[in-house]
Design a protein around this nucleic acid. Structure first.
Lengths: 309, 309
DNA sequence: GTGAAAGCGCTAACAA
DNA sequence: TTGTTAGCGCTTTCAC
């Protein structure tokens, strides 16, 4: 309605507001084919990293006028069901996957939705992708320890329960092996232990490592949560951090400061915001829907690292 | 289609599955007036407690066939906008509010949606409500300390940033005062310090408490996250836990075991699941939509409490 | 019990 | 430009 006096327009808008009239989303969706909502898919909604990313995405989506439909994959069964039933079908205009390593068939299934897709972590083709510079971050950790004088290092890697696949863990393990080699730091296959993701996993992994005949003077944990578990094991074993073992994590979890953990910080909320922006731009047809964004990491030195004895 | 041979019915279903046909949600919504989705409203999606509750709710909602629309209030501005614009309007069949202390006008606004509502934490009338037995939980903490021989106790309370209102903090503070009185434990207004919610808030609150001329031998923190911050301050002040001060938290946060914190555990995920069930039942017209569920707490004794010196 | 038809409340294409 | 109309794809009601 272009030719309407501003005053009239204002009054109409006001009346609408007072009656709290809003166009029926259902009718609008049916007629236009647009849902004004995007699906955000996470393996586990409660894990710190995912929750942070969701927050970043939520803010961007809200101000762009999109509703946020949250889907939690959960265990392997849930994951299969998700890709089989595709509950996003016809319900969202776009999808945002957080740290879900897409198998080829899963990706094909997803593409069959015919909607723009963005991912955080991982690098599927044909989708927008944002992530942190994993290799650089890992190098930051290894170099820090190396600079302190550590010549032998181990690593604690996480493998999710129930066979769920992620992509970031592999990237970090590979980066660790490359960085140690580049810096001529000694490591050993028996010092790179993989267990279940999370605190309990980290605790177990460190138990395994401590049970080895020899052990490194420093340990890099793939995530702060794994490091937290490792910390618990080390302390319960009567050893001191950093006296007996230096420990570095990855994430800069909000509790890292409480346990005085040196860690590689990544801009977690920004990851979600960036991915959501990518998606929103793609939905507006305003941008390369297959863009790739890499965010930087930084080292936060706290009290869990020191020169070796 | 009642009179269809089972075999035929099966074949049709299979064909539908193969073509991955699903009824258009938009059309279905428009025709039926039902959206098959519920709105879940949280102050901050990334805080541990809220994320846990959302997970509990998500699982129940998913298996009941409801989509989960996530709304994050954020700061006071966001909250006002939410209640003014009511973005849930005509988009959801029901709403689940997590720890949002409803002002009378806000509740009225919400009721104007004309949909079933359930809340976690707090006890608005005319809605389904689930919560933990706050008073009993606080008593558990105070009694534990009292049993250890502590005759003086302080408390660290959280006040959210930006004037956002919650209801649970007040309940816990009142319960603390009642419990200490009942057990003849000494406390003091200057020992009950309220600051911003969270780790940093807890750290500050403990600084304030340590600056007092006299101080209690034990401290109860309203939440584990506040306790984590307090722990950091105590350690940085060169004091020992539990040597100099005993500390008890509330929640049984997944990291409580890492810092060896004695705490009052509450079934966080169950809260979300119970509230979601309440809502689903109300939507099915199968239950009292104003039901009230109270879940129990339990004491988890770890290493942050001991008899006073 | 079965099938046809009339909306649900918008959007978009079209005619005026 | 502006107003009109034909769907969008279901659900539900109402004849049959």
């Amino acid at each position: 309605m272009p030719n309407v006096a501003p005053a009239t327009r204002e009054r109409v808008a006001q009346a609408a507001a007072e009656l709290s009239y809003v166009a029926s989303p259902a009718a609008s969706r049916l007629a236009s084919g647009r849902t004004s909502s995007v699906g955000v898919v996470v393996p586990f909604a409660s894990r710190w990293f995912f929750a942070q990313v969701v927050v970043g995405a939520a803010e961007v989506l809200r101000s762009a006028g999109y509703d946020l439909l949250l889907y939690q994959l959960g265990d392997e069964d849930g994951r299969e069901q998700f890709f089989e039933r595709l509950p996003l079908h016809r319900r969202v205009d776009g999808a945002l996957l957080i740290d879900v390593a897409l198998q080829p068939d899963e990706q094909a299934r997803l593409q069959s939705l015919g909607i723009p897709i963005a991912v955080v972590g991982g690098a599927a083709t044909g989708v927008g992708a944002v992530g942190t510079d994993e290799a650089a971050g890992v190098e930051l950790a290894v170099r820090h320890l190396s600079d302190l004088g550590h010549r032998s290092m181990g690593m604690l890697c996480g493998r999710p329960a129930d066979g769920l696949r992620f992509v970031v863990p592999d990237q970090r393990r590979v980066a660790f092996l490359e960085a140690t080699e580049r810096l001529s730091v000694r490591t050993d296959p028996s010092w790179v232990v993989t267990t279940q993701w999370g605190i309990e996993g980290g605790a177990q992994a460190m138990e395994t490592l401590l049970a080895e005949a020899s052990r490194p003077t420093a340990v890099f944990a793939e995530s702060d949560e794994i490091a937290f578990g490792a910390l618990r094991t080390i302390r319960r074993a009567g050893l001191a951090v950093p006296g007996d073992i230096s420990l570095v994590g990855f994430d800069d979890h909000e509790l890292a400061s409480v346990v005085d953990l040196t860690t590689v910080a990544q801009p977690v909320t920004d990851l979600g915001a960036a991915a959501a922006s990518l998606l929103v731009d793609a939905l507006d047809g305003e941008a390369d829907p297959f863009a790739r964004v890499v965010l930087p990491t930084s080292l936060v030195v706290r009290g869990s690292t020191a020169p070796p004895r």
